[in-house]
């Protein structure tokens, strides 16, 4: 029971990370396509500035919780995905440093270097997260000792790459909507136009991904085999994910940006949980032999650790959510030129 609760929380933490850092990563990817001059670029940075740091901690927490609740899964997952994770790490390093370093020197070349870092880092991070999760859904070649029998190229299989594309487009739309709600004028108009196109692209990516999931993974089997999960997906997939995707489109058309952003958030959470629920009780299915899979049963920490961690999570995470929500509320207004007048305002 404790293991199952932690499995759900584990999925939820990753979902929250994707939902929050998703718009930063998407916006970083989109920047060269939406921002034309330095002022507009600064506006894009400023749109993420107050949030990216706190958002990234969700990744650290999701990683930390994997380590704490399912040590074996952490060990096998991180060592198996070694090269992909190192790339992700460098992508996130360049993205993060770009955020803080760009505005420090007013020199065109200096800014250009960090603009490239931001875009390349954001794009690569989104892609790799998608590739990693698609591969987890699909199963990776781990042997009976939990040793990975593949390479970086193994991960770049068609389904893995499809996951990468899905994440890039999903985050790009999420970021585009965020930009629209944080800006006015030409930048806002460009974001508005782009949002409709990205939505269509996302619809296509999602449909192809779902179809490929049928052939490439055992996620649906799990839904069909497990009576509980036969009921849950009926709630989870059509009602949350699909309707969230539809509502995103509706709100984009009505230019109700906050609502569109919430709908897009819900789509990201729904998509993640769809995959995670399909995995249950696996954390890392083995594509060599299902018996070698890392599951919540062979990977979970001791009941004592799980209980202590549950206590910490249930008391502290709501507080974190509360003060982060306050920060989002505090910086909710559209960015004005006056926000950019000072150095520390990017």
């Amino acid at each position: 029971m404790l293991e199952s609760i932690w499995f759900f929380l584990w999925g939820l933490l990753w979902a929250i990370y994707f939902m929050l850092d998703g718009f930063d990563l998407g916006l970083g990817t989109l920047m060269p396509f939406v921002a034309r001059d330095d002022m507009e670029k600064r506006t894009v940075y400023r749109a993420m500035g107050p949030f990216w740091d706190g958002n990234e901690v969700w990744l650290i927490t999701a990683g930390g919780v994997t380590f704490a609740a399912f040590p074996l899964a952490y060990a096998v997952m991180f060592s198996s995905l070694y090269s992909a994770l190192m790339l992700l790490l460098f992508a996130l390093i360049f993205r993060g440093v770009a955020m803080e370093f760009r505005g420090q020197i007013h020199h065109e070349k200096w800014k250009k270097v960090w603009d490239y870092s931001l875009t390349a880092g954001s794009f690569l991070a989104a892609l790799l997260l998608g590739v990693a999760f698609a591969n987890i859904f699909q199963g990776i070649p781990i042997d009976e000792k939990g040793v990975y029998q593949g390479s970086l190229i193994t991960l770049l299989n068609p389904y893995g790459l499809l996951g990468g594309v899905l994440f890039v487009v999903m985050f790009a739309l999420h970021g585009c909507i965020w930009l629209a709600l944080k800006t006015e004028g030409p930048l806002h108009d460009r974001a508005t136009t782009l949002a409709s196109r990205l939505w269509t692209a996302l619809l296509a990516a999602a449909v192809i991904f779902l179809a490929a999931t049928w052939f490439a993974t055992r996620l649906y089997d799990n839904y069909l085999e497990n009576p509980l999960f036969f009921v849950v997906p009926i709630l989870l997939i059509p009602i949350i994910a699909v309707s969230a995707l539809v509502m995103t489109r509706v709100y984009i058309s009505r230019t109700r940006w906050w609502e569109a952003w919430f709908a897009s958030s819900l789509f990201i959470v729904g998509t993640t949980l769809f995959g995670v629920a399909g995995l249950y009780p696996h954390l890392l299915p083995s594509s060599i032999n299902p018996a070698y899979s890392v599951t919540i049963h062979n990977a979970a920490s001791s009941p004592l650790t799980l209980k202590i961690m549950l206590g910490v999570a249930l008391t502290v995470i709501p507080v974190v959510i509360a003060y982060q929500a306050w920060v989002y509320h505090f910086f909710k207004d559209k960015i004005q030129p006056s926000d950019l007048a000072h150095d520390e305002g990017y």
Partner: peptide, 13 residues
């Protein structure tokens, strides 16, 4: 990880 991992997770949280 049972001990060390939980300390890292608590730090983040």
């Amino acid at each position: 990880g049972d001990i060390f991992g939980s300390l890292l997770a608590i730090e983040a949280t």
